[in-house]
Design a protein around this nucleic acid. Structure first.
Lengths: 162, 162
DNA sequence: GTCAGTGCAAACTTTTTGCAACTAC
DNA sequence: GTAGTTGCAAAAAGTTTGCACTGAC
C-alpha cells in the first residue's frame, strides 16, 4: 500500500469513528492525523508539536494534541508507549507488528520482528479477558553500550564491578 | 523458600551490591528493601511511602525512596513498570516470571503465567543486543468491563458505537 | 574527620483542567 | 443558535535537583 493510500484510508477510518461517536470533524484533528502518519517510528507530544509547526505551519495547542491522540488511540489508529517518564506514540494502522528492544543504558529503542513470537503471544489464551493489543519490551544493552562498558572495565581493572 | 529466607537472601545480595559499588549501608536502604519485599504485587512510590510509615514507623523522604529504588533496580532486586503515568515497581528476586494483562478501561493490572510464552521470549535471538529482562503487557478488557459495556450497549441500542 | 547519603523545599517536566472564545453542525 | 472544541494559563501529578545537615566509614 502506498503512503498516500494509507493517509487516505486512515482519514476515512477516523471520519467514521468521529461520526459514530458524535464528535466533530475539525481541521485540527485531521491535520494531527496527517502529521502523525507522516512520521516513521516513535514520537512524543513535543516533537509532534514542533513538527506540525514546521511542516504544516499548523499551530495547535498541546491540550488539543492530547485530546486528539486519545481519540486516535480509541479509533485504534495510534498506539501509546511508556518506555520512560514521557509517553511515546506511534501510528498503528497498516504497520507490521513489531516488538521493542530498549537499551537500559542509553535509552535507545529499536524495533524488531519475530513471526513465531508474535503468534505465540496472539495465541495465548487469557481467561476472562479479551485481548486487543500488546507490547513486548525487551531490556538489555545495545552493542554500542556493551563495547563502551568493556572498555571501561579494562581501564578500571582494579575496581571491582558487579 | 520461606519468606524470611527470601528477606535474608535479598538483604545479603543488596549488601554485596553496595559493597561492590562503594555505597554505604544505611538503615534507610535496608528498611526500604525490607518493606518492598513484604509487598505482594505492584506498588508505587506513594504507597511505599505510606506503608513504611504505617508498618515500620520509619519515615524516609521521597527523594531517598527514588534513590534507593534505583540502586535496587541496578542490583536486580526490583523491576520498574510504566503502565500509566506514574511508575510502578515490584520485587523481582525469587518471583516466578509472569506477564501482565492490563484493562484499558478500568486500568486493573493482573498477572498471569505461560511457560511456553516465556520460553519463546527468552529464546528469541536478538542480534547485537544482550537481553537482561523483558516486560509483556497485554491490553484488553477485563471481564467486569466487558459485562459493563454489554449492558451499556443494550441500553443505548440506537446509539451506534464503533 | 570526611564525604556519601538524607530530608526538605524548590524546580522541572509532563499531563490535566477550567474557562472564555470560537466554529462545525 | 448551540454545544462540542480549541487555546491559554493555571493546576496537578510525578520526579529530579540543590543545599545544608547528618552519620557510616
Amino acid at each position: 500500500m502506498k503512503t498516500t493510500d494509507v493517509q487516505d484510508t486512515v482519514k476515512q477510518i477516523f471520519t467514521e469513528y468521529l461520526n459514530a461517536n458524535g464528535h466533530r470533524k475539525t481541521p485540527e484533528r485531521f491535520a494531527i492525523l496527517d502529521t502523525i502518519y507522516s512520521i516513521d517510528g516513535h514520537f512524543d507530544i513535543d516533537s509532534l508539536y514542533s513538527l506540525m509547526m514546521e511542516t504544516k505551519k499548523f499551530r495547535v495547542s498541546r491540550a488539543t494534541l492530547y485530546n486528539t491522540i486519545d481519540l486516535l488511540i480509541n479509533a485504534r489508529l495510534v498506539i501509546k508507549h511508556q518506555f520512560t517518564n514521557s509517553s511515546q506514540y506511534e501510528k498503528s494502522y497498516n504497520r507490521e507488528t513489531h516488538h521493542h528492544q530498549i537499551c537500559t543504558q542509553c535509552g535507545k529503542v529499536t524495533e524488531f520482528q519475530d513471526q513465531d513470537l508474535q503468534e505465540a503471544i496472539e495465541q495465548c489464551k487469557l481467561s476472562r479477558f479479551s485481548q486487543s493489543h500488546y507490547s513486548l519490551y525487551i531490556y538489555g544493552l545495545c552493542s554500542k553500550c556493551q563495547r563502551a562498558n568493556k572498555r571501561k572495565k579494562t581501564n578500571n581493572i582494579n575496581k571491582k564491578e558487579k
